[in-house]
Amino acid sequence: MESFFATLKQELVYHRQYQTRKEAREDIFEYIQVWYNRKHN
């Protein structure tokens, strides 16, 4: 799990500035869905 969160931060969070928490949640949710679906389909 720690590896996943490190990857999430490196590939997504550190490269963006979010105006709201909602915007961040939506972006992170989309990232997780794409990442998970690629790995498990």
Rank of each mutant, 00 (worst) to 15 (best):
M1W: 10
M1H: 05
M1R: 01
E2A: 04
E2N: 11
E2W: 08
E2G: 14
S3M: 02
S3R: 13
S3E: 11
S3F: 10
F4R: 02
F4E: 01
F4C: 01
F4D: 04
F5S: 12
F5C: 13
F5V: 08
F5T: 07
A6W: 05
T7N: 13
T7C: 09
T7K: 14
T7D: 09
T7P: 02
L8K: 04
L8H: 05
K9W: 10
K9Y: 15
K9F: 13
K9H: 12
K9I: 03
K9L: 03
K9V: 06
Q10K: 13
Q10H: 11
Q10R: 14
E11R: 03
E11H: 07
E11N: 07
E11D: 12
E11W: 04
E11S: 04
E11C: 03
E11I: 04
L12G: 07
V13P: 01
V13K: 02
V13L: 15
V13W: 04
V13R: 00
V13A: 08
Y14E: 06
H15I: 03
H15A: 08
H15V: 00
R16C: 03
R16Y: 07
R16A: 03
R16Q: 14
Q17C: 01
Y18K: 06
Y18Q: 09
Y18D: 10
Y18C: 04
Y18R: 07
Q19Y: 07
Q19R: 14
Q19D: 08
T20Y: 00
T20M: 00
T20E: 01
R21F: 05
R21M: 06
R21T: 07
R21H: 07
R21D: 06
K22R: 12
K22M: 10
K22V: 08
E23I: 02
E23P: 00
A24V: 02
A24G: 04
R25P: 00
R25W: 02
R25E: 06
R25Y: 04
R25C: 05
R25S: 12
R25N: 09
E26H: 11
E26Q: 13
D27N: 11
I28M: 07
I28V: 15
I28H: 05
I28T: 08
F29A: 14
F29V: 11
E30V: 08
E30R: 15
E30F: 07
E30H: 14
E30T: 13
Y31A: 01
Y31L: 00
Y31Q: 00
I32M: 12
I32Q: 06
I32S: 06
I32T: 10
Q33E: 09
Q33K: 14
Q33T: 11
Q33H: 04
Q33I: 04
V34I: 15
V34T: 12
V34F: 06
V34C: 09
V34M: 12
V34K: 15
W35C: 11
W35P: 05
W35H: 14
W35F: 15
Y36L: 14
Y36M: 05
Y36W: 12
Y36P: 08
Y36C: 10
Y36H: 08
N37H: 12
N37T: 12
N37D: 13
N37E: 03
R38V: 04
R38Y: 10
R38M: 09
R38S: 12
K39A: 15
K39V: 09
H40N: 15
H40E: 04
H40P: 02
H40F: 05
H40Q: 02
H40A: 09
N41W: 08
N41K: 13
N41L: 13
N41M: 11
N41E: 15
